[in-house]
Amino acid sequence: MSAIQRAAVRSSSPLATAVGGPILVASDGTSVSSDALFNAARLAARAYGGEIAILGVSEPVPGVAAGVDVLPVPPALDEVRRQHLLDDLRREVSVSASGDPAWPIHALIGSPARTLAMAADQQHATVIVMGIGRHNPLDRLFGTETTLATLRESRVPILAVGPTFPSQPVRAVVGLDFSVASVQAAHMALQLLPPGGQLTLVHVRPRFEHPSSEWAAWDADYGRTLPPLFEQVRAQLDVPDHVLVETVTLRGDPAPSLLAYAQQVNAELLAVGTQRHSLYERILVGSVATKVLRTAKIGVLAVPGNARETE
């Protein structure tokens, strides 16, 4: 069975959508793009049916080395930090034009990425809404940027938005490799679009770089397999009449090709499926979703390949 045929088998699996779980908004209480963050949460709540909840996570105070011993941190100190974070979150929601003081607000102590991912999974969240975050070299090298780190830990989809993310996107691009995760990303992106919206399914195929007849034959077979795969995905999506869906095939490296195409068509959202990678692969190569998040100027919807399936 060829790789393309295996993809066709995977993409024929039923869509599993975590509809109705909470929309978990991750914030540190000091976001300069709170309105965009909360607007994105409202959009997700309308699309998926969940209630909005705010969650902040503060890292515990590290112990202080004293010779060969480590002086423990008084538990009360972490609790003071948690209360300060909770106050900041409440203030952020109350002063934001898009916030609602009635939303449940919680603050926890722990590793931000792992704690967010665990809380989302335990609460059966539909999606985690987060900021795109910083893009400086240290964040990329050490993996400290919270959104990227959470993406690696999470079994729940992440909707990452910047300050210019609109309250209602009308154009979305999906990076489609015909895996279950990428089809699920297409399904979730479709739900975010209004009547008159446009969804573009983009498959990035390898560049033709080998002169052999074997490669040419494989590449031709690859091309013939794509149209029925696209049609199969369209059938799975059950596209409403009021949304236009088109398909596009590109050649090149997936992440830059998807980003360039999204910019070319003025898309406000780029959706991708994610796959697990080893630490070695993440450092030297990284996933398509990681590369997209590091450079995207638009909203990114990342759906993990190991996402929790709910009816």
Rank of each mutant, 00 (worst) to 15 (best):
S96M: 05
A102C: 05
Q122I: 03
D121N: 10
R134E: 14
D100T: 07
H135W: 00
P104F: 06
A102P: 02
S96V: 08
N136H: 14
A117E: 11
P137L: 11
L141V: 13
I128W: 03
M118Q: 14
T126R: 05
V129C: 12
P104K: 09
S98F: 04
L138H: 07
V95I: 14
L138P: 06
R114S: 14
P112Y: 00
P104R: 11
W103S: 13
A119P: 00
H135Q: 14
T126S: 15
I109C: 12
T115F: 02
W103Q: 11
A117I: 07
R140A: 15
S94K: 05
A125G: 10
I128G: 10
W103N: 11
L108K: 13
P101K: 01
W103D: 13
G131Y: 03
P104C: 11
P101N: 03
T115M: 10
I132C: 07
P101Y: 01
A119Y: 02
D139P: 00
M130L: 09
M118F: 06
S94T: 13
G143M: 02
L108M: 12
S111P: 05
Q122A: 14
Q122L: 11
S94G: 04
D139M: 02
P137F: 04
H124E: 13
D121Y: 03
V93E: 00
Q123C: 06
G131W: 03
P101C: 10
G99T: 09
G99D: 03
M118E: 15
I105Q: 13
S98L: 04
H106R: 15
L108F: 11
L141G: 01
N136G: 15
M118D: 15
I128A: 09
L138T: 12
A97T: 13
H106S: 15
A120C: 11
S98Y: 06
V127W: 04
H106L: 07
A107Y: 02
G99I: 07
P137M: 05
D100L: 05
W103L: 10
P137D: 10
G110N: 09
G133D: 12
G99F: 04
Q123E: 14
F142W: 07
W103A: 13
H135D: 13
V129D: 12
L138W: 13
S111K: 11
R114G: 11
R114Q: 14
A107N: 09
G133S: 12
M118K: 10
F142S: 01
I109P: 07
S111F: 01
H106K: 12
H106C: 04
F142E: 00
A113S: 15
P112M: 08
D121V: 01
G131R: 05
T126V: 04
V93Y: 00
L116R: 01
L116A: 04
A120G: 14
A120D: 11
G99N: 04
R140E: 15
H106F: 10
A119R: 12
V93W: 00
A97Y: 01
G143D: 02
R114I: 06
A120V: 07
V93S: 00
A125T: 04
V95E: 12
P101T: 05
G131Q: 05
T144G: 01
S111T: 08
W103H: 10
G110L: 08
